[in-house]
Lab assay of single mutants.
Amino acid sequence: SASLEDVKTAVLGLLVILQTKLYTLPASHATRVYEMLVSHIQLHYKHSYTLPIASSIRLQAFDFLLLLRADSLHRLGLPNKDGVVRFSPYCVCDYMEPERGSEKKTSGPLSPPTGPPGPAPAGPAVRLGSVPYSLLFRVLLQCLKQESDWKVLKLVLGRLPESLRYKVLIFTSPCSVDQLCSALCSMLSGPKTLERLRGAPEGF
């Protein structure tokens, strides 16, 4: 439990870093931090981490990651405290083949985003970082199938509809809506759902 406290501190630090690096160059920093966060949550489900502190780590990670939004130009952003989304000039939600690297070039400044813009690109060529939603999407499927803490599952179920409104997140990387529907149906009809959940409301 003591070591998990250190892990929790590290994860919180990564969330803060991602919130900053999403809007700064090099964009590969945001890509790497995002991948680290998603990989860490995957390990929770792989090794069945069920301690309360592990659940709190997942809760905080999902609470942040499910706020990711994308505009029509595929640029990622996060809402501010007033709910207004600021889109990044440097990070996009497109999935890119590994051989192309985590970044790609664009020939010049991008068109203005639909929300308040981030800082304008400084040079004639900007390297865009790929932060594909499919990585998070796979972890969300694991959550629906394996999550043991009701608070975490409730958060994910509550945030998913709003995330799905931003269709560009889903359609720019390999996210299977069929698998999502299947996971939701299995969660509702499967007898093991109630068996594994802690803290579920009576009558769920």
Rank of each mutant, 00 (worst) to 15 (best):
Ser3Ile: 06
Leu153Asp: 00
Ser111Trp: 11
Asn80Gly: 10
Leu144Trp: 00
Gly158Arg: 13
Phe171Asp: 11
Lys81Arg: 12
Gly77Gln: 03
Leu18Ile: 06
Pro191Ser: 12
Ser28Phe: 08
Pro116Cys: 15
Thr50Trp: 08
Gly83Asp: 06
Ala27Thr: 11
Lys145Thr: 15
Phe137His: 04
Ala54His: 04
Ser130Pro: 06
Pro124Leu: 11
Leu68Gln: 05
Leu12Pro: 01
Glu202Leu: 09
Glu195Thr: 11
Cys185Ser: 05
Leu144Lys: 00
Asp82Ile: 07
Tyr49Phe: 08
Cys185Trp: 04
His40Met: 02
Lys104Met: 14
Ser134Ala: 07
Leu37Glu: 00
Arg127Met: 15
Leu110His: 13
Leu157Lys: 00
Ser102Arg: 13
Tyr166Phe: 11
Lys104Trp: 15
Cys181Val: 11
Leu22Arg: 02
Ser3Gln: 13
Gly203Pro: 07
Leu184Trp: 00
Ala2Ser: 10
Asp178Thr: 09
Arg69Gly: 03
Tyr166Arg: 05
Cys143Ala: 08
Gly83Glu: 05
Arg159Gly: 05
Ser130Met: 09
Ser102Asn: 11
Cys181Asp: 00
His47Ala: 10
Leu180Gly: 01
Cys175Gly: 07
Leu14Ala: 08
Pro116Tyr: 15
Leu110Gln: 15
His47Val: 06
Lys21Asn: 03
Pro26Ile: 00
Cys91Leu: 13
Leu197Asn: 03
Leu155Thr: 13
Tyr90Phe: 15
Val84Leu: 10
Ser102Phe: 11
Glu202Trp: 07
His74Gln: 04
Leu4Asp: 02
Gly158Thr: 13
Gly158Asp: 14
Asp149Tyr: 04
Leu128Lys: 15
Leu180Cys: 03
Val11Tyr: 07
His29Glu: 06
Gly77Val: 02
Thr31Ala: 09
Ala183Val: 10
Leu153His: 01
Pro89Ile: 04
Thr114Asn: 15
Arg127Gln: 13
Ala125Pro: 14
Pro117Gln: 10
Ala125Met: 14
Phe87Ile: 06
Gly115Asp: 11
Ser134Leu: 04
Leu157Gly: 00
Pro79Lys: 10
Met36Thr: 07
Gly190Trp: 10
Lys81Pro: 10
Ala10Phe: 00
Val168Arg: 10
Glu35Asp: 08
Pro191Glu: 15
Leu68Lys: 02
Ala2Val: 08
Arg196His: 07
Thr9Leu: 07
His29Ser: 05
Leu18Glu: 02
Leu194Asn: 06
Ser186Trp: 07
Leu153Arg: 00
Arg165Ile: 05
Leu110Asn: 10
Pro113Leu: 15
Val11Gly: 04
Arg32Cys: 04
Val92Tyr: 09
Val85Pro: 08
Leu135Trp: 10
Gly190Thr: 15
Val33Trp: 01
Val152Lys: 01
Asp6Gly: 03
Leu18Phe: 14
Leu135Gln: 13
Met96Arg: 10
Gln146Asp: 14
Leu155Ala: 13
Cys93Ser: 08
Glu202Ile: 10
Phe87Gln: 03
Phe87Arg: 04
Ala10Tyr: 00
Thr114Pro: 13
Leu140His: 01
Tyr49Trp: 08
Val84Cys: 10
Gly190His: 12
Gly13Asp: 01
Pro89Arg: 14
Arg138Asn: 12
Gln142Asn: 13
Leu67Pro: 05
Pro112Ser: 14
Pro174Arg: 07
Gln179Ser: 09
Leu164Ile: 05
Arg138Val: 07
Ser148Asn: 09
Ser72Thr: 09
Leu180Lys: 01
Leu14Glu: 01
Gly199Tyr: 11
Leu78Lys: 05
Leu43Phe: 10
Leu157Asn: 00
Leu164Met: 06
Leu180Phe: 06
